[in-house]
């Protein structure tokens, strides 16, 4: 699975993209897995209210299922326009 990070999430983790081998069944399980990896992940995922998530390029909630997802992206609330 490809995991993408944007804006300050990308800066905090120090990566724009990585490939993960995960058994996580939901976004929340994936977040917990990432949090346990290293401090920089724990810091980036500290406050989920400040984050948004997309699965296969659709915005979803953190309790969304990952069944067969190819791409998960984490980012702050969007500021377009």
């Amino acid at each position: 699975m490809q995991v993408l990070y944007f804006a300050w999430v990308r800066e905090r983790i120090g990566l724009a993209k990585e490939t993960l081998d995960t058994q996580a069944g939901t976004v929340m399980e994936l977040v917990d897995e990432l949090r346990a990896r290293e401090d920089r992940y724990a810091a980036a995922f500290e406050d989920l209210a400040a984050l948004r998530v997309a699965v296969d390029q659709d915005l979803v909630d953190f309790d969304a299922a990952l069944n067969g997802a190819r791409e998960v992206a984490f980012f702050p609330p969007m500021t377009g326009g």
């Binding site: 702050p76 969007m78 377009g80």
Partner: peptide
Amino acid sequence: YLKSRAPFWKKEHTGESAGWVAA
């Protein structure tokens, strides 16, 4: 809708610093 549902993020570069614009 494109302000808060399209995945764009703005970063402002001022004098000596740079910061992400908060929604």
